[in-house]
């Protein structure tokens, strides 16, 4: 029990043919910790999350959740995935299910929990993300931001130990980003363990216990947000952060 919810990644290597995407990555995430992963596009951020969830076959190293190895080909992968709640960048709600069914389907068919209990919990979760009134709507009737909030509620319904968020606001209109990120800030306040891939730097700064800067498939720099964002140690991180500042300078002109 002491190890409950600990994620350990050792020497992770992921390649598509000759193209090495993640190259010997080590990372340990403690319960209650919020780790934000940032880096230029193509640096392997999303791939990292997909590996953690066993959606990608890995070419080396290992990923351990508590005492179980995460392996997409193993028989117990479905059990392990129940402990890992994932939200993707693209809206991935099930279009043929109502909002409440989206949230309750997995707890009912996977965890085989009583329907009444699951529905009550699902309604509470929808209420929490401010969408209880959309209970019986279909995903197509919702805005992008609302869909992502449902996707978060759907992942939470499985009571995961760790949440994996893969650029969940990247496809949203700017005015909808906040409503989604507020939900995540709320989860962080509650002490939910999360690994977050994002391009929203001010959000990263607000939510992170630890920031990891990924480039070329390995961790170039990591640290607490105050130190990382105000005084990065590596040139690469400094250059990366400057690409965000550049926009800000231009807007003052």
């Amino acid at each position: 029990m002491a190890n409950e919810g600990v994620l350990r990644i050792e020497g992770l290597r992921k390649a598509y043919g000759d193209n090495v995407v993640i190259d010997g990555l080590d990372l340990t995430v403690q319960p209650g910790e919020v780790v934000v992963v940032i880096g230029p596009s193509g640096c392997g951020k999303s791939t990292l999350l997909r590996c953690i969830n066993g959606l990608e076959e890995i070419q080396g190293g290992r990923i351990m959740l508590d005492d179980a190895e995460v392996d997409g080909r193993s028989k117990n992968i479905a059990q392990i995935r129940q402990k890992l709640g994932m939200v993707f960048q693209s809206y991935d709600l099930f279009p043929h299910k109502t909002i409440i069914d989206n949230v309750t389907l997995s707890p009912i068919i996977v965890q085989k929990r009583p329907k009444a209990e699951v529905v009550a919990e699902g309604e509470a979760l929808l209420d929490r993300v401010g969408l209880l009134d959309k209970r019986d709507d279909y995903p197509r009737q919702l805005s992008g931001g609302q869909k992502q909030r449902v996707a978060i509620a759907r992942a939470l319904a499985m009571k995961p130990e760790i949440m994996l968020l893969d650029e969940i606001t990247a496809a949203l209109d700017p005015e909808m980003v906040h409503e989604v990120l507020d939900v995540i800030l709320d989860l962080a306040r509650e002490g939910k363990t999360m690994i977050i891939v994002t391009h929203e730097m001010s959000f990263a700064r607000a939510v992170a216990d630890r920031v990891i800067f990924l480039e070329g498939g390995h961790i170039v720099e990591e640290g607490i947000p105050e130190q990382f964002f105000t005084n990065p140690k590596t040139d690469r991180a400094r250059a990366f952060l400057r690409t965000f500042e550049f926009d800000a300078v231009r807007s003052h002109v």
């Binding site: 969830n53 959606l55 479905a78 059990q79 995935r81 129940q82 890992l84 709640g85 994932m86 993707f88 693209s90 991935d92 099930f94 279009p95 043929h96 389907l105 997995s106 068919i109 996977v110 965890q111 996707a151 759907r154 992942a155 499985m158």
Partner: peptide
């Protein structure tokens, strides 16, 4: 049917058979 549908169903802990039965087949 978008591959993301299968992936998100898998990430919710469904088995391959459950993904087919509840997510992919109806769509």
């Amino acid at each position: 049917v978008e591959p993301i549908q299968t992936e998100s169903a898998l990430s919710l802990g469904m088995t391959k058979w459950q993904v087919m039965r509840y997510i992919v087949l109806p769509q």
